[in-house]
Design a protein around this nucleic acid. Structure first.
Lengths: 165, 165
DNA sequence: AGAATTTATCTAACATGTAAAATATCGCAA
DNA sequence: TTGCGATATTTTACATGTTAGATAAATTCT
């Protein structure tokens, strides 16, 4: 859903919403991801699989719910992706002895190899993005994004008029 | 794909990538969209359908490729969404007499009614987002996002090392 | 001890993202 | 006039986003 200007009598009643906030965020993200995607494809990996593998690098083992949070993926998506990664022998899964509802997910040796091969390219791309945009500006943008997220996640949900259940 | 710090010998070899640029953009967008989604659901509409209908408000008729650009949706997605919207009687489709390959898409009367009902809620939500974050800061954020997109869309694609076809 | 509630994860179903390919139409050169 | 390349859109196939619900295990209460 996009933002709108105040209703006006002009023919263009709502600003061109490709410049709304959600759209701007989407376009910016696509402009960034477009550069990473080819490298991922060369290694037969999707963006979401990469996010999972990257998250698993940070610790020797993670629970599924932790992975969902770290990767910002929905639960059902993580379940399916883990199923595929397990089939590709890129991760291992074991049950938590203390709580059998939980699984502990870890990188397999093959998964670690793949990460080793992809990481240098990922870093190189990010370095070039930083160079083009400017490290100072990037830090400012990150701070603003963090603040936007924080401001909107605190306090009550915003509802439109005519709320009904 | 996420950003990375320079390789380090520390145990945390790559920064927690939930704070990478792509992830930050994704989280920020979700923080915004989370407030819009309930209102859309109350009208039985998905976010993408709303984007298409909103785009159609700006002109009496649009081509499919124009719609894809205005809504930042991929061609196959637009095709499917238009099929569904047509089935819901929210849009009309006619062939361009000058070029029969092209379709001209327009809002139907029902579509216009729906937009009239949803728009006030959308605007109210956006106004509250603006109030919470600050209009000045929002403008700055928009400008930075636009610049990021511009910087990354000009010049050559960035490729990682070991490029091979 | 047993029942009820809560929690963690997975599955189902459908919409959309994405890459590749197919189909129809148009424009241009020979 | 015909053939070829380009263009616009749709379709196919598969991955993921999303909501809702199912299953299994743990915790809490009676």
């Amino acid at each position: 859903m996009s933002d709108t200007d105040a209703r006006a009598a002009s023919p263009v009643r709502i600003r061109h919403f490709s410049r709304s906030l959600p759209m701007s965020l989407l376009r910016a993200r696509e402009a960034v991801m477009r550069h990473f995607r080819p490298a991922l494809r060369r290694h037969g990996m999707t963006e979401q699989q990469w996010r999972v593998l990257r998250a698993l690098m940070t610790r020797p083992g993670m629970e599924v719910s932790e992975l969902a949070e770290a990767t910002f993926l929905l639960g059902p998506s993580v379940s399916r992706i883990l199923r595929d990664l397990e089939g590709l022998d890129l991760i291992t899964r074991r049950q938590d002895k203390a709580d059998q509802r939980r699984s502990i997910i870890a990188l397999s040796p093959r998964g670690e190899e793949l990460i080793e091969r992809v990481s240098p390219q990922s870093e190189a791309i990010y370095a070039e993005i930083t160079r083009r945009f400017g490290a100072q500006k990037l830090a400012e943008l990150q701070a603003m994004l963090r603040e936007l997220e924080s401001v909107l996640s605190e306090g009550p949900a915003i509802e439109g008029v005519e709320t009904r259940d």
